[in-house]
């Protein structure tokens, strides 16, 4: 377990233990209502050595990288970067695989390129 937490710290270059659970990140998050766990709860689970519980929640995928939490954190923790690190670790496990060829022309015409790429990076790796 400690390995994964070290990996998150290394990839995100953040000290997870500086978070003191004030909850400002969750207070400002625009997509918090859709999340299984609040952003500060994810950090707390990592602090407690429970990375699986943190990764099984949909929180990191619902994070839109808007950086509101990053800007507001009084302890200077870049929470968006922590979410990014969790995504990086998770996508290498190859879950929720999407077959690119099966995406319909209509969907391709509606979605902006970066949205498609963000889907690929989550679900085809």
């Amino acid at each position: 377990m400690q390995d994964i937490i070290d990996k998150v710290s290394e990839l995100s270059e953040q000290n997870l233990y500086s978070c003191y659970q004030c909850g400002k990140c969750s207070g400002g998050c625009p997509s918090v209502s859709e999340m299984d766990l609040l952003p500060n709860q994810v950090i707390r689970l990592l602090q407690l050595g429970m990375p699986d519980d943190a990764s099984n929640a949909n929180t990191m995928w619902i994070c839109a990288s808007c950086f509101t939490c990053t800007v507001r954190c009084p302890k200077g923790v870049d929470i968006a970067k922590v979410m990014e690190a969790l995504r990086q670790i998770s996508l290498r496990k190859n879950v929720d695989y999407v077959e690119v060829r099966e995406i319909s022309a209509k969907e391709i015409s509606i979605l902006p390129q970066i949205a498609l790429v963000s889907n690929f990076r989550k679900q085809t790796a």
Binding site: P30, S31, E34, N58, W61, I62, C63, A64, S65, C66, T68, L111, P112, I114, A115, L116, S118, N119, K122
Partner: peptide
């Protein structure tokens, strides 16, 4: 100052 939501578009369209 809120986000438009586009970052989640291809992950979960409803959200």
């Amino acid at each position: 100052e809120h986000c438009c939501g586009a970052g989640v578009l291809a992950i979960n369209e409803d959200i």
